[in-house]
Simulated scan of single mutants.
Amino acid sequence: MMKRILVTLPITEYHKKRLERNVTNCSFQYVPLSEVTIDMVQNSEIIVGNVPVSYISASNNLELLQLNSAGADAYILPGVLSSGTILTNATGAYGKTVAEHMFGIMMCLQKKLHLYRDDRVTGEWNDYGTVTSISNAIVTVIGLGDIGLYFAGMAKALGAYVIGIKRRKSDCPKQVDELHLMEDFYEIIPKADIIVSFLPNTPSTYHLYNAEFFSKMKNTGIFLNGGRGSAVDQDALLAAVQNQDISAAGLDVTDPEPLPSEHPLWKEKNIMITPHVSGSYHLPETLDKIVEIAAANIENHLAGTPLKNLIDFETGYCK
């Protein structure tokens, strides 16, 4: 029986050729996500792309759902996928783009460039005083997946001492000087000049960064979040910055998204916000990497061989 493959990515002819190169007895349907219908989803055996959760409805036809995102939280909820559906994500595609984006925000905050950029609007000529350097800074990276390791590698290359925190015990990667587990979380926080999080949205990460967390940071510290907005208690973060319990914060993710225009986070001068744009396809090679992951997983699924980036439905992380 010919399998139907629905692809919702904004791909080129080159990408189509890559997806179809080693695949036989399959029909490909390329449809922009905005034009996808529930019938298309329900009639597909393989889907590449983050189709609306409500369209899946535990489809018995769906064998493989290959996400174009690293986060899989919406798809692991009970009743979304049938027990026979394999779920894979795009871990490995976003390391460079997200890490570089968050690194840029960090450098802006360290050098107070956000304040000088704001002065352009009013034409003021101010001197905001002392700045900090990444060289010899203690940088703590929470979440050492593809993105976290890329960020850690850049920080270490510029002379930072990098502390990594992850869920499971492993050998210390070369990008990290010191490795700890989440159980050491509160012991590590006071040491850091910069703390950056790349954690997904799971029950265990919800409001992990709360008033207690910010109270343990250095008052000169910078907090960055490039993972999911739900990990941060935003009221606690705002209070920490306003009370100068920490120096500044940089967010590419918020809760909710979009962040309402009247939200007080927008008004705080020492909180830099970008609207969840670090990933997506803003760096063109990211899409190339997603297509490569998807092509390999389609081929492996059809051949009955192991797939990359299998999602553990209990944790929301790759197995």
Rank of each mutant, 00 (worst) to 15 (best):
N219L: 03
A239V: 00
N225R: 12
Y186M: 06
L179A: 04
K166R: 15
R228W: 12
D184A: 15
H207C: 12
C172V: 14
L199Q: 05
G229N: 07
A240Q: 09
H180R: 05
D184E: 12
D235A: 15
N210F: 08
C172I: 14
S230E: 13
E187M: 04
K218G: 06
Y209C: 14
S215N: 03
V176Q: 00
E187Y: 06
P190S: 07
L238Q: 04
A231K: 04
R168Y: 12
K216G: 03
P190T: 09
T220I: 09
D235K: 15
G227Y: 11
H180C: 08
K218N: 13
S204W: 03
G229A: 05
L238M: 07
Q175C: 11
A236D: 00
R168M: 08
G164K: 00
F185S: 00
H180K: 13
H207P: 04
G229D: 02
L237K: 11
E178C: 09
Q234D: 06
A239T: 11
S197V: 09
Y206L: 08
K174N: 12
S215Y: 00
E178H: 07
D171E: 09
P200T: 08
T202N: 06
R167G: 03
S230R: 02
T220F: 04
I222P: 14
A239P: 02
I195M: 02
E212Y: 09
G221C: 02
G229I: 03
A192E: 05
F198Y: 15
Y206Q: 03
Y209M: 15
M182P: 05
E178M: 09
G164D: 02
D177C: 13
I165D: 08
L224I: 14
Q234C: 04
E178A: 11
F223P: 05
D184H: 12
P203M: 09
L237Y: 00
I188H: 12
A240V: 12
E183A: 14
A236H: 01
G227V: 13
P173H: 06
G221M: 00
P173T: 04
E183W: 03
V196E: 07
G226V: 08
D235L: 12
L181I: 07
F213Y: 04
N201I: 03
R228H: 10
K174D: 14
I195V: 07
Q175N: 11
I222Y: 04
Y186Q: 04
P190Y: 04
F213S: 05
Q234N: 06
F198E: 13
L237E: 01
A231F: 00
A239I: 02
A211V: 02
V241Y: 01
K218V: 11
Y209H: 12
L237A: 00
E178W: 06
E187H: 11
N219S: 10
N219M: 05
D184I: 02
L224S: 14
K166S: 11
L237W: 03
Y206H: 15
P203H: 07
